[in-house]
Design a protein around this nucleic acid. Structure first.
Lengths: 146, 146
DNA sequence: TTAAAAATAATAATGATTCTTATTTTTGAT
DNA sequence: ATCAAAAATAAGAATCATTATTATTTTTAA
């Protein structure tokens, strides 16, 4: 039972805003983008229209960065790399990981494969987790499966 | 400047709870797990100790499901598959995606590659996004990069 | 033109997470 | 063991993204 939709200038503007950028924006960015053009739009309307457009397959969720959900107007299958330092999200051209043996029976959403890490601009080298801590040794050690 | 740590029975219990399961739990699950053994523990303490253990590299964040962050006590490199329907998180054995051309310069955190999709138990077949909507055609079409 | 359905603004509510503060534990040195 | 400084904690307030509610305005089909 597909819900009937009416025309809405604000929904059009929300979708246009997401489609206008490659930054994979969140709700607040979209709101601030549309606000100058349609000053009486409310943040709730942005959220509601994001939801509607997702239901229609016009938008896809990319992931959550800093507790904020980010979206993509390009719904063709592709992957994403998310920098956990600056929060930027980049498109990744590459093959879908369908071949992975332990994914058998799992229907991968090819629009939602995410590589987290540090982007080139932010340094891109691994963090060094090895430190010394007083009184902490008893918790370390024995990583991995027993 | 590594902060000095003192021993804490509660921190030990939090870490033990995460290490005791393969379900990749969230804060609330950990809290409910530890609560019977240490009845005066508070949820805030769970959150704080998750944070501390992450700083020490003893725990890793796996991703966010239903607005809840999920963790893993196995910090050796491996990937995860997350079912967006039931919220279950499975380990994925497979190669790291370092070879992807568009990831050059991006330091992938090999503990944080996530495949979203539908698990076998939940159906595992693709959703059909193609529907008809009244008054919505003007928003559809022209997917992908202009 | 009109009435039902859909969309909206304003605002309240929710829920996960973080912060604050007074109190309790831990620890190293005595 | 004692003591004081540093660290950890409980309780609850605060934050912040997101969702729900409700009265009002738009859209649409007849």
């Amino acid at each position: 039972m597909s819900t009937a939709r009416n025309y809405s200038k604000k929904r059009e503007a929300v979708l246009a805003a997401v489609r206008s950028t490659k930054c994979h924006p969140g709700a607040r960015w979209i709101y601030e983008q549309v606000k100058p053009k349609l000053p009486d739009i409310s943040l709730g309307t942005v959220y509601r229209n994001i939801k509607v457009c997702r239901e229609e397959g016009l938008l896809a969720s990319v992931g959550v960065v800093n507790n904020e959900e980010r979206f993509d107007g390009i719904v063709e299958p592709h992957q994403h790399a998310i920098c956990t330092k600056c929060g930027s999200i980049m498109d990744v051209e590459g093959v879908a990981p369908s071949g992975q043996p332990s994914l058998s029976g799992f229907a991968v959403d090819n629009r939602r494969t995410v590589f987290y890490g540090i982007c080139a601009k932010c340094g891109g080298q691994e963090k060094n987790w090895l430190k010394k801590f007083k009184g902490f040794g008893h918790l370390a050690g024995r990583f991995g499966k027993n």
